[in-house]
Amino acid sequence: MASPDITAPTLQFEDVRSPGNQDQVDAGGFSLNLNPGDLALFFFESKYRIPEIANLATGMTQASRGDIQFLGKSWSGRNPQEVLASRREIGRVFAPRGGAAWLQNLDVDENVMLPQFFQPGVTKKEVQAQTMEMARRLGMDHLPSGRPSRTSTADLTRAQWVRALLPRPLRLLVLERPGYSVPPQQIEPFIEQVNLRRGEGTAVLWIDLPNEINHRSRLLPTCEFETLPEGLKGSF
C-alpha cells in the first residue's frame, strides 16, 4: 500500500457537486483546500443536511461531479483496503439522527475502543489505557459502560469525542454537531483537545447549526461556509 502524501493538503474538494436530492446538501460546484492544522466551519440551516458533507469528505458518498482528495489521492482512486486504512486516520463525531453512531449490540465503551483494535500492532491494554487517558483529558472519570440505548444523549456525545480523538495518526477530524445536548461549559476540554490536535497537524471540519455554536471565538476557523439557496458560500 502506498504511503500517504503528507505534503499534500489533508482534504481537497475540487469543483464538487453532491449527488444528493433536495433534502440533502447541495455542495454545488464548490472547492476547498484544507491543509494540516486548518479548521473549516460549515453552517447548515437544516440539521438533516449535515451528514452529506461529512460523508463526502470521508469517501462514504461519491460526488456526482468533481473530485475529493484525502492526503493527495482521490477517494475514488483507492482500492477498498486503502480506503479503510485512510478512514482509520479520520476521527468523526457522527450527527445525531444522521444515521447510526453506535452499534447497539456493544456497550458504549466497547464502541469507543472498537476502531482502535484495528490499528496495526496495538494491544488491548494499550487501547484501554489510551481510551481512559483521553476520557480523563475530556473531563470524564470513566466511559459509560451500558448499551447506547440506555445512555443519556450528553454522555453519548462526550463518548463520541473520545472516539473521534483516539486515532493515531489523526489526519482529519470531522465533527458533526459535536456540542449537541452537552452543556456549553463541558465542551471546553474538547475544544482544547481539538486545538491541540490542530497544532500537531490535524485538519478539522466542524459542521454545525448556526444557533448551536456558542464557542466560535475559541475555534479560530481558517474558513467558514454557510448554505444559501444556490449552494455553499464560503468566506476566508
Partner: peptide
C-alpha cells in the same frame, strides 16, 4: 436478522466510516 437489522439501521455504514472491514 442481526446483520440485516445492522444494515437497515446504518450500523454497517458506521463500521465502514470508521475504517473497519
Amino acid at each position: 436478522t442481526e446483520l440485516a437489522t445492522m444494515k437497515t439501521t446504518g450500523e454497517v455504514t458506521l463500521l465502514e466510516a470508521q475504517g473497519i472491514d
